[in-house]
Nucleic acid binder design. Sequence first.
DNA 1: TGCATAGATGTAATGTTGTATCTTACCCGA
DNA 2: TCGGGTAAGATACAACATTACATCTATGCA
Lengths: 154, 154
Amino acid sequence: MTRHDHQLHEGEALKSAARDRLTKQGEQWTDMRASVFDALAGFDKPASAYDIAEAVSKKQGRRVAANSVYRILDLFVGANLARRVESANAYVANQHPDCLHDCIFLICDTCGQTVHLDDDSLSGGVRQAAKGAGFSAPRPVIEVRGTCEDCSGS
Amino acid sequence: MTRHDHQLHEGEALKSAARDRLTKQGEQWTDMRASVFDALAGFDKPASAYDIAEAVSKKQGRRVAANSVYRILDLFVGANLARRVESANAYVANQHPDCLHDCIFLICDTCGQTVHLDDDSLSGGVRQAAKGAGFSAPRPVIEVRGTCEDCSGS
DNA sequence: TGCATAGATGTAATGTTGTATCTTACCCGA
DNA sequence: TCGGGTAAGATACAACATTACATCTATGCA
């Protein structure tokens, strides 16, 4: 596995990195988008759009509809601020929105905790295999379901 | 990519291989299961449970409910007769139910066609990475979204 | 034979995830 | 201040998945 020497953001730093990234792409950093990002980053495991809608609703004391959240999540995924975890139908905040990786998620079937690896040699191999089969614009989805260390111990 | 020298089944041969495999596991090969397998194998791209329910319903002239199909698909996936394509919420028949592979799906975003690779070195690398991170019983999900050769040409 | 039982399937309802469409609110430049 | 554009709200609906419980059927055994 490759080591990351780039910045791992958290809390306010992550939030402002996300804001910078989005505005740099010509998109607006609205209150609603900030709220969705906060909620997403506040979860310690992948959150569904509905989870986020509920969290934002609670925080703001008004009902926020799921479709608004979806729109914003799509935008985030497009801007590399968030990732979709396909096998969980859920989303996670990207801790380093400024680096482009094909990332690998390890999702615990027991507790839902998800850890995130970047291994460009593995994902590169998958990309190569796809290209070799005639696929263009490949976007690898590499996830592993299993049991995390904490859960397998208990 | 590794070459397959094992048997690739199709049509009746595939069906009987599937039946053998299932019965060998102590499960029954019922009419309903045969119908679901037929329908699944009859699609040329990943089929959702509802697609299959509809196909079976049409063929039998009676309404088959989704949950029956889900039950059987779960059984099939457990017995290696079928695979779930996570990023498509859909299922495909496994062409060689007797071999255990972590397979790789390439799904065309345009036409939905899905090709299936077995590359044990890639999937092994992913397994290794997961184990290295403390994950046990890893089940890799490796899929690639992109554009197939046919669709990128047009 | 007839009954008990376990497994398979049917029925219905419901929950979760994702889109489509139209409307409204707001900002900003002309 | 008007007009165009983007963001977000409201509503409906489509697609995917699960649950609880009823019924059927094959099988073994008294």
